[in-house]
Design a protein around this nucleic acid. Structure first.
Lengths: 337, 337
DNA sequence: CTGAAAGCGCTAACAC
DNA sequence: GTGTTAGCGCTTTCAG
């Protein structure tokens, strides 16, 4: 069963010779052109099989001016990227769609690769397009990137320009729903641990929170930035508690921060779900690993990833596609609120 | 609809013309050859700057027969990969070293990209080398990969062959230390939640556990496979508890599984650290997020990643390098044992 | 339907 | 030191 290893890989020339046709014909069958006679097709196929021919990527790129590669740009540091299951879901979705295509995915964790290098790479014609998985208002290099190759943003870009492509979840509505859920259950003294104010997702969820509270004639008890990290969530919760009294209810803008909030609450002897109602955002694995399990706003991250990848593939193929997609959220009721 | 067209990037030819030299000279300065006169060097540099010249990667690869890209192969599904902070650390280390080199890193999550496609990619001359981040005995495709390009394994490969390169931590010794820690504190009825038996890391840690127990004249109370996942750890703990009585102490072969064990323990009303001593393995962020914080065996994963990347770069550069490196572990004492 | 020919942008001998 | 000359392996007109 062991096939000959392809050390000095076969070239298109060798395949052509073996199949008794010209390079062009081999190229046609490799690229799925229909204009090839059945007999030629057959003999080329056999030759490819026998020689274990795999087209050389560099040569192909050079001639066709396409790389068949896309970049997945993560403008986060590695710890944050791997620390939040949200990214895992997004990447899983992207990876799935790209994996089924004939593109490969280059991951650039942009703060590790010095971003200058990353940008140089992206602009050096190494990829046909890019997906930017999260976006801070401070990421200026991302903007420049979009001038070079087609880019799909995960989440509304900080500054939306007419031609921008992005897939977002309805963060404002999600924030509204979460807050309304709390209000509807009779809570009046409501606080929030928000996402960072330099990220659209953080801004939008907070917006939804404020809107509903205002509509209900309520004032937020506290608004603290938890930076979308577990430690940040814990710190934010500590700050809220430091003010003296425990809110009745809390909207935390990500499940991971909610985990931090649980910890901080318990340090002070408060039991989440009993002493204070808590609702999160994400519905990642973190939500169910918590005790009591976290009531949360589900966002379809994996699906978001899939749609971003599909959108990019559509753009690259010149297919018609919408510039943006907004995905709905949904409340998942569990024990914490 | 059309996105911004890719700007026609400057070519080496244009740079040469502008600098008033030949292509070769430009190539020499781009590639850091010393055999260039100061004046030529200067004018080429300026031309590059003015034209924003970035060498075309495909052309370069084709001519030099090098891709300046390496693959990071993850033979895990996406959920597992993103679910365990261990991978985050490894990748952070790799990413750091590769990021400082002029290589780029292609991540292949091998169960998503159908592994046939991944293998074809790797054998199609798309990368100069590969790092395989974890390894199951069932991953046969990985073996075939090593016939094609230089490969560095993370952890001892399932079947070590003489020429294999790998960087591992001393899992047997780590397992020994953890178990001895428990024994030294007077515990006699000791159980373990082990890693999967198709992974060297799981096998080795269990080995260390068994060895020390045998040396102490003790029998394991229970040995359950927790599959290196949180849910698996919880299940394994439940199985141990189902037998009726609570062990005095527990060695859990990964921090993530320990989190699951905490959950399962509390379901039955047992308090980790008080009713049962627990020691983990990893010292990832999970260890400190637990309450009580997890006493654990620290493995230098980030450093492991760094060393793997460095080793690969050495091999690719033809530098002398050891084929293997074994990193030491260290016990980190916290509240759980 | 098929082959010949002309590059894609760069590196790497090999002269000078 | 520097330029000239061949390709690297493939795609893509353009004839036929």
């Amino acid at each position: 069963m062991s096939l000959t290893p392809v050390r000095g890989a076969a070239t298109i020339e060798e395949v052509a010779a073996r199949a008794g046709v010209s390079r062009s014909t081999v190229s046609r069958v490799v690229n799925g052109s229909t204009a090839v006679s059945p007999s030629a097709l057959e003999s080329v196929r056999r030759a490819i099989e026998e020689l274990q021919y795999v087209p050389n990527r560099a040569a192909r790129s050079l001639a066709s001016r396409q790389t068949r590669a896309i970049a997945l740009v993560i403008p986060e540091d590695t710890d944050r990227f791997f620390g939040d299951p949200f990214f895992g879901s997004i990447v899983a979705g992207i990876s799935q769609v790209i994996g089924e295509s004939d593109y490969v995915m280059n991951m650039l964790i942009a703060t590790d690769d010095a971003s200058a290098k990353a940008l140089g790479y992206l602009r050096g014609g190494s990829v046909d397009g890019a997906i930017v998985a999260s976006h801070h208002t401070s990421d200026t290099f991302v903007d420049r990137l979009a001038d070079t190759v087609p880019v799909i943003f995960g989440g509304r870009p900080a500054r939306v320009r007419p031609a921008d492509h992005y897939v977002d979840v309805d963060n404002v509505q999600g924030g509204r729903d979460a807050t309304r859920y709390l209000v509807d259950r009779g809570h009046r003294r409501i606080a929030t641990v928000a996402g960072p104010s330099d990220m659209p997702a953080g801004i939008d969820r907070l917006q939804g929170f404020r809107d509903v509270l205002a509509e209900a004639g309520l004032e937020p008890v506290a608004v603290e930035d938890g930076d979308f990290t577990e430690a940040g969530g814990a710190d934010a919760m500590r700050r809220i508690l430091a003010s003296g009294d425990l809110p009745e209810a809390l909207f935390v803008a990500s499940d991971l921060m909610a985990r931090g909030a649980y910890t901080a609450l318990r340090e002070q002897g408060h039991e989440p779900g009993r002493d204070i109602a808590i609702i999160g955002f994400d519905d990642s694995a973190v939500a169910t690993s918590l005790v009591p399990a976290l009531t949360t706003v589900r966002q379809p991250s994996r699906d978001q990833g899939r749609q971003m990848a599909t959108m990019l593939l559509d753009v690259l193929a010149g297919r018609a596609t919408a510039n943006t997609a907004i995905l709905p959220t949904e409340i998942i009721e569990r024990g914490s609120a």
